[in-house]
Design a protein around this nucleic acid. Structure first.
Lengths: 173, 173
DNA sequence: TCACGTTTTCACTAGAAACTGAAAATACCG
DNA sequence: CGGTATTTTCAGTTTCTAGTGAAAACGTGA
């Protein structure tokens, strides 16, 4: 029924399936992770129907997850002239993927946490003794740590891959 | 019915609740995140019943999540002499929390990914042209990036807080 | 404007994950 | 031992998330 797969496609299918499982552990949904894996290893941009076909998923599912990936800036939409379908292409450069994910996670996960910590610290700034003071201090410690992490992160993601590499090498030596 | 809460407990309750929501975005379950928040801000170790009471959750739920937190090395069990209940105490030092979480995530999330990438690369090591070669290269790139990241991470988490801070400051300046 | 190819939405369903409460197991004490 | 305090397990239930498929909306070219 189906043609024989080239050998590398075999490995690719394993990669896609397993990356999907790994994704769930990261709190990313399986389909999104699989689509991302599929596109990262696609020789050419793919359209919705191709993705549906390869992963055996519904149009709605394919559509939503493709658009979510676009929202994460991990995938971009390509249009071909004389064809009104949308094609999707993933960023393949590892360093760029890393930067993109870091930025998004900072925005979605770290910054809200920092806001919460500052809010809680502010509410208890007058506590000067006992458990109230300890709580205040704990909020400040967490805030300081995360904020500092963000600063370091910002510096790293503003670097070119080569500079970051060089800097990291220095740490290791 | 209930006594007035000290003002700092008000902030604490907000912290616990919100940390729970944030946790879900991280892919951590709400209850676990809330218990962790509760214990991180607890003046004294707490027993299961206190946790149940504070968070209004069942014994089973409290129990499983407390034990999971112990499994993550974020919480330890304390026993008091003359009392056969178990009490739970969270690590409060931010740097130690960071190291603990980093180690666990490396083990649970990064290392399996690296194994997958190596496997897929190995399967395609003979591909020398076209899409097969590109796939192989992509696997190697991802592997190399993650492995390098692990190396850097290992170096950082082996540092004392002060040294890490000093090192990071140098980066920022 | 209509017809057609395509994208988007959404009510519904399936499946997974979290939670409950109570029974069973365990540990300790006299 | 027997009694009691505590922990652990787990079948059943609820809640949430992901996924489906078809209808609606959109957009373009004739």
């Amino acid at each position: 029924m189906s043609d024989e797969l080239p050998p590398w496609e075999k490995a690719r299918e394993e990669f896609v399936a397993q990356w999907g499982s790994l994704g769930t552990q990261w709190g990313i949904n399986r389909t999104m992770a699989m689509i991302h894996a599929l596109l990262m290893t696609a020789p050419e941009p793919m359209c919705t129907d191709e993705v549906m076909e390869k992963l055996q998923i519904s149009r709605g599912n394919a559509h939503t997850n493709l658009k979510d990936l676009v929202g994460w800036n991990l995938v971009r939409i390509i249009t071909k002239k004389g064809d009104r379908k949308e094609y999707f292409e993933a960023e393949k450069d590892v360093w760029k993927i890393f930067i993109t994910i870091s930025k998004e996670r900072k925005r979605r996960e770290i910054e809200p946490a920092i806001r919460l910590l500052r809010d809680c610290a502010a509410q208890t700034k007058d506590e000067t003794i006992g458990p109230g003071r300890d709580f205040h201090q704990q909020m400040k410690d967490l805030d300081e740590f995360l904020s500092f992490g963000v600063k370091v992160g910002d510096t790293v993601i503003s670097m070119k891959h080569a500079s970051a590499l060089q800097w990291a090498m220095r740490l290791l030596s």
